[in-house]
Each structure stands twice: as structure tokens, then as C-alpha cells.
Nucleic acid binder design. Sequence first.
DNA 1: AGAACTCGGACAGTTACTATCCGTAATCGA
DNA 2: TCGATTACGGATAGTAACTGTCCGAGTTCT
Lengths: 162, 162
Amino acid sequence: MRLGEGVEWAIHCCTFLAVLPPGSPLPAARLAEFHGVPPAYLAKHLQALARAGIVVAVPGAKGGYALGRPADDITMLDIVDAIDGAAPAFTCTEIRQRGPAAVEAAKYRRPCSIARAMWDAEHAWRAELKKRTVGEIARGLAGDVAPEAAVKTAAWYQEVKR
Amino acid sequence: MRLGEGVEWAIHCCTFLAVLPPGSPLPAARLAEFHGVPPAYLAKHLQALARAGIVVAVPGAKGGYALGRPADDITMLDIVDAIDGAAPAFTCTEIRQRGPAAVEAAKYRRPCSIARAMWDAEHAWRAELKKRTVGEIARGLAGDVAPEAAVKTAAWYQEVKR
DNA sequence: AGAACTCGGACAGTTACTATCCGTAATCGA
DNA sequence: TCGATTACGGATAGTAACTGTCCGAGTTCT
């Protein structure tokens, strides 16, 4: 089981947009430049975020992306679902109905215990992601690294917005 | 994020081996026949289970596979790790060190909050899978379907073992 | 109105998963 | 001892998902 790299990029972009002064969208190319990732590919993921309403896309000159709602109302799960898709990781193919022990479909009242157990685990994963919001992450992000990085970030932003 | 189909097959095989009378291994071809899955491909996954010690492989005529330890000592997580690999689904590529705001590596004391949040969620998923054992699942499996299926299973097993 | 800039979807390359086959080694029954 | 059966590993294709890039449509500013 592997989570696409785009999920990481999307979360970083959202947390970054959360710490930026609001009211001024940032182009996809600038977001890619700041994070050191391929611009064209990041744009694709940003489009997915826009479709989910997590960010709003502002077209035209001086356009770009901005958060679609308050950072505290955006959960990690929202982003993961938008990028990776909301389809469950485990899909029950009902192999119990495929062998020589199969009986007519109506006799299977509930999904098999195996699928239930896998789905329970997945629910725990999603519940944990739902607890964490972009706002919370953004506030804690500064403590991960020396204040020097925040200074460089501010300098870069001023340069870009000039 | 998607979990390979082989995981489902492996769990079904383990729970099936758990309800079978012990002391008599079942060939991979029989396991594939009972579950209605491609024999050659299932064999690959069974080999992975054997490498992990979850099942024991008995070579030669009258050989096959049997559980490697009591069913209550085999967790769902054991099987998932054996088939899908124990590598974490989310891998932090440290993109915070790649942009114009990057500072020297030593300044990053702890992993970024984003990675920690993702890993916490993954830990919750693994913890849930670790709670459930093959023995527990096997005991509950019969209740999912009409008793008729158990009869057909027993008949098939007697035919195979003849 | 013109120009510049942006998003948006359509188009290839790469990796991982699915699936199969064959040769080798080991075990049991005759 | 010989043949049948079975697990094991490698080599080999096909398929789907992820990664990556491009150019056109629409919008905003001057």
C-alpha cells in the first residue's frame, strides 16, 4: 500500500497557503518553485484540490490559488480524499462466492468478517486524519525548524509579491 | 491508496487453513481451486507467507501449506506486512529542504508535522489490524452465511482428501 | 481592444501490480 | 529405486496507476 507523492505536495501547499496573508492568491508556478517540485504536475493536483473546494482558483493575471475556506475547517482527510480519491484501499471481491462452497447470493446476509475487519482499520486511519486540520498543522510547522527558515520564507514571499 | 488483491486472498487462505483439521497440509492448487483464484499467482503470495513464517510449506507429494503457528497468534497485520510489505504508505520526501526557504539539514530537529500526522494515522490503522487475529476471524466467518455453505465446504474437503 | 497571465484538460513515460510459465529440489507411495 | 506430486525461484508479458509535460481556452489588467 502506497500513498502517492502528490498527497504530500498538496498538504504542504495547503499549509503554506494557510500561513500566507489572505486576499492575495499565489500562482501554481510559485507554489511549485517554493517547494521544489515539477510545476506542471503540481498544477494537476491543485486542480483536484480546486474541484473539491479546498482551494479556489483565481484565473487571469494576478491570479493563482488560495484556500477555499478557513484553514481550521480543512482536515487532512479532505486533502487525501481529493488527491488520492475516496475509494477504500481494501476492496472485497467476494471470493467466498466464487469457489465450490459458494451458495446463492441471497444467503450472504452481511459482508464477510475479513472485509469488516479491514474496513474497521481503514476507518481508524480516516478518523485519525479527520482530527488534524490544516490550521493546526500550519501553526505547529514553524516549531519543526530553526526560525531562520521563516525569515527566508518571508524574504522569498516579498520578492515574489513585488 | 490501494491494497493489492493478494492481501485478500492471503487472509482468506489463512482463515481457511485455520478451520481445517490440523496435521494435513493443503496444496496451493487446492487453495486456489476453493477460492476461485489463479493458482500460479496465488502460489506467489503463499510463498511470501511462508517466508514470513505465517504458514509452513511442506514439499513433495502429500505436501502443501499449513499454518505456521496457532491461529490466535497470527494477526491481520502480520499477513498484510508479509504480502504488501511493511514499508509505510506515506513517505516524507523532505520537500521543506528543497525550496528557496531551505536551510542546512542540521537545523531540522524533528520530522515535519505533516509527516508525523500521516504516520500517526498509519499507526492507528496498523494498531487496528494488530487487534484482529486469524483465529478470531475464522470463528466469526461461519456466521456470515447460511450453514449450507459449511456443508458444501466439508463435502469439498472430504472429496479432495480422498 | 490588446497583451499578458492563469487555469484546464489532453497527451506520453515510468513504475508497480497482476498473471503465467518453466526448471529445480524435495518428498511420498509403489 | 522409480515415478508422481508438490514447493520454490527466476524469467517473462500484460495491465493499471502514478508521474510528468505540453498546448489551448478563458480571464484580468493596462
